[in-house]
């Protein structure tokens, strides 16, 4: 029995302190995902808390078929998506309807952003926040959490091909946005 399995068994037997260890171990993963999906900083912590409450309730059904991190990320993804559907229905549909690159390209970057932002780091993160939810999630899981295409597919229930495609399109959009920002900066100088 490995460390993770032992931890899960302790939690299922009612050891709440063991659960605190699990929360500390996976809170960054959940936070990164929820931050990218939910976006409103004021709501992020509440949604993260909901995720860990669900993880605790569903832990007795966890059969070690997938890695624990993947299983927790799946719950985080579903909770985040449900939250956006429930509280920001408009922006959710907006996000999904805009999967055509030409539409996104016309909005990325926003001309106001280019004028406002001098710092390209901040500019880039604003552009990421403007991407559709699936693009943002895939980018976060691949680059920040360093998960494989297969794991991202398991979490989001998307085929691997779709994951690769979203990743490629998201990065190309961001690269174009960065180029536009750089051009603007050069002209300004």
């Amino acid at each position: 029995m490995n460390d993770e399995q032992a931890l899960v068994r302790q939690i299922v037997q009612g050891n709440v302190r063991a659960y605190q260890t699990l929360v500390e171990r996976y809170q960054r993963l959940v936070l990164h995902m929820i931050r990218r999906i939910v976006q409103q900083p004021a709501d992020v912590e509440d949604v993260c808390q909901d995720v860990f409450m669900k993880v605790y309730q569903q832990l007795p059904t966890y059969q070690f078929e997938a890695k624990l991190s993947t299983w927790i990320a799946t719950i985080a993804y579903r909770t985040g998506i449900n939250y956006v559907k429930k509280h920001h229905r408009e922006s959710f549909h907006h996000s999904f309807d805009q999967l055509d690159d030409t539409d996104i390209l016309s909005q990325l970057p926003n001309p106001e952003d280019v004028v406002q932002q001098d710092d390209w780091h901040a500019f880039l993160h604003r552009q990421i926040d403007r991407l559709p939810i699936h693009y943002r999630t895939v980018l976060t899981l691949y680059h920040l959490e360093e998960l494989s295409y297969e794991e991202i597919g398991q979490i989001t229930s998307m085929p691997e091909g779709t994951v690769k495609n979203y990743l490629f399109r998201a990065r190309r959009l961001l690269k174009n946005a960065l180029e536009a920002h750089q051009t603007r900066e050069k002209n300004y100088e």
Binding site: R17, Q20, V23, F52, M53
Partner: peptide, 10 residues
């Protein structure tokens, strides 16, 4: 945060 979650569970 982790403390808050465990307190809520308790």
């Amino acid at each position: 945060f982790s403390n808050k979650v465990t307190r809520q569970i308790q």
